[in-house]
């Protein structure tokens, strides 16, 4: 399954990845190759098979007690942030 340049551009846009002009054809070739490779799955007969989303069958979600266990650590956590002010994470102006 060969992908077009436009498809690569739209995938990259959806994934919020900037690709350089040099990178584009490289990904176009390798993604096409990967899709061709995984195309082998078509051959498997999965007519009545339920998809397996989780490796351990029969387990179910545990429910947490509704208790507040966390304190305010925003100053510490924001030490990793590129840009903050007055406790807020800053990004370029978002126009709604």
């Amino acid at each position: 399954m060969a992908l077009t340049r436009e498809q690569i551009e739209s995938i990259a846009a959806l994934a919020r990845l900037e690709l350089t002009a040099a990178e584009l054809p490289v990904y176009q070739a390798s993604l096409s190759r990967i899709l061709e490779f995984v195309g082998a799955l078509e051959r498997a007969d999965t007519a009545s098979v339920t998809p397996m989303a989780h490796p351990l069958p029969g387990l179910s979600q545990r429910l947490r007690l509704d208790a507040v266990t966390e304190q305010d650590h925003h100053a510490e956590y924001q030490q990793n942030a590129p840009q903050v002010a007055a406790g807020l994470y800053l990004v370029p102006k978002v126009i709604e």
Partner: peptide, 12 residues
């Protein structure tokens, strides 16, 4: 065609 199919083969 891809994700769901793969999860089915995974089951197999």
């Amino acid at each position: 065609a891809y994700y769901l199919k793969a999860q089915r083969v995974r089951q197999l």
